[in-house]
Nucleic acid binder design. Structure first.
Lengths: 207, 207
DNA sequence: AACGTAACGGACGCATGCGTCCACTTGCCG
DNA sequence: CGGCAAGTGGACGCATGCGTCCGTTACGTT
């Protein structure tokens, strides 16, 4: 009576969630429910009983990612150095999105029929906006940077999910460094006030 | 005997190509052959007789775009100002790709089963590479910029095809300006040596 | 140990996209 | 102006993904 689910049911449910997370990350939201069921060694009916709609599955599968998004903007807003906070938010969000094709799809509402994270996006957006203004007030972020520009950068980062997995992280970091360099007000030191090192990674190993 | 096709056949063929170009531009390569046929007011069989495989259709539909790619890199290589040439190539290629979702798919080989532009990509790549070196030799492009970075930027630009059509061009130009600003060697003047104006557009009208 | 029910997965009907076939139409040439 | 081959579009069979139903299994309780 203590368990809401029979132990085998719970096990299957967990396997389904794990499979969904894997497949979503690798191939985006377009994976079929059947593929997920197959990967989880489960029949379609089992999957549908636990998650009647794909939306349910997506929401639960990306709970962690949503939470990390929260951490990222929270950390950024709490950083004593406004500019470093801004840079870290950009880089970490880009990395998170590039590593998980499915989460990017969901967060950007690429499949509005399946799931819409607009609410979360807007909530996070508000915090990001304060981070932007803080960095500008500190005289580090170009004053003409507007919130939509942040969306543009995220959208652009989405394109990097198409890069081969082996070089993706490097590509994203490099991309983030380019963009951040372009957003700095001219003459300002790269990255943090303390100068935590060059803002640009070495060139790609494989080129 | 002068015509290889009957006049009605030729007309249908033209309508099919026009429809394909429209749909590919709007929605990418994933549009079905049936959708194209419907838009062209033509039966599926007609479409398949003229273009037995989607690859045939794609190749002919994007002839113009491929040619324009050639012009772009040619212009860039011929520009007396190496830096301006480089910047123009980046911006024009990004715009071309953002305006035509299908061409981007094809050029980036997002659907390798349908079409593979690898040959064209490589050929254009060689010219781009000389443009990069020229801009670096002129001391305007960061010396650590490598060819893969160009690919990264294109990949990122691909993400912008997801932006709403009404703001896409503005977003792309703004994005290009950000990136170019990040690629300039610090302390160098923006854009051309003559300073053809600020490299950054105004903020988005709709924000 | 036995039983009731939660849980399972295979199988079904539906919808859609695919590429091809075929009976009818129509432009072209004698 | 008449015949025929080129041309056409609807219809077909196949494949795949969808969401649901139902006979069977096996967990947990008494």
């Amino acid at each position: 009576m203590t368990h809401l689910l029979r132990v085998d049911a719970r096990e299957n449910r967990d396997r389904v969630l794990a499979a969904a997370r894997e497949l979503f990350a690798e191939s985006g939201l377009e994976v079929t429910m059947r593929q997920i069921a197959r990967r989880a060694d489960v029949g379609p009916a089992t999957l549908y009983r636990r998650f009647p709609t794909k939306q349910d599955l997506v929401l639960e599968a990306f709970e962690d990612e949503l939470a990390e998004c929260g951490s990222i903007v929270h950390d950024g807003a709490a950083d004593p150095d406004p500019w470093r906070g801004f840079c870290d938010v950009v880089e970490r969000i880009l990395l998170l999105n590039a590593r998980n094709q499915g989460f990017t799809d969901a967060f950007m509402s690429a499949h509005p029929d399946v799931v819409d994270f607009a609410a979360h996006r807007e909530e996070l957006g508000r915090v990001v906006w304060t981070i932007i203004r803080r960095a500008q007030a500190a005289g580090r972020l170009r004053p003409d940077f507007v919130f939509d520009d942040f969306a543009v950068i995220l959208l652009a980062g989405r394109g990097l999910t198409a890069a081969p997995a082996s070089t993706r992280d490097a590509a994203v970091r490099r991309f983030a460094a380019f963009v951040i360099d372009g957003l700095r007000v001219a003459g300002t030191q790269a990255r943090s006030a303390a100068g935590e090192g060059s803002s640009r990674p070495r060139p790609h190993p494989r080129s």
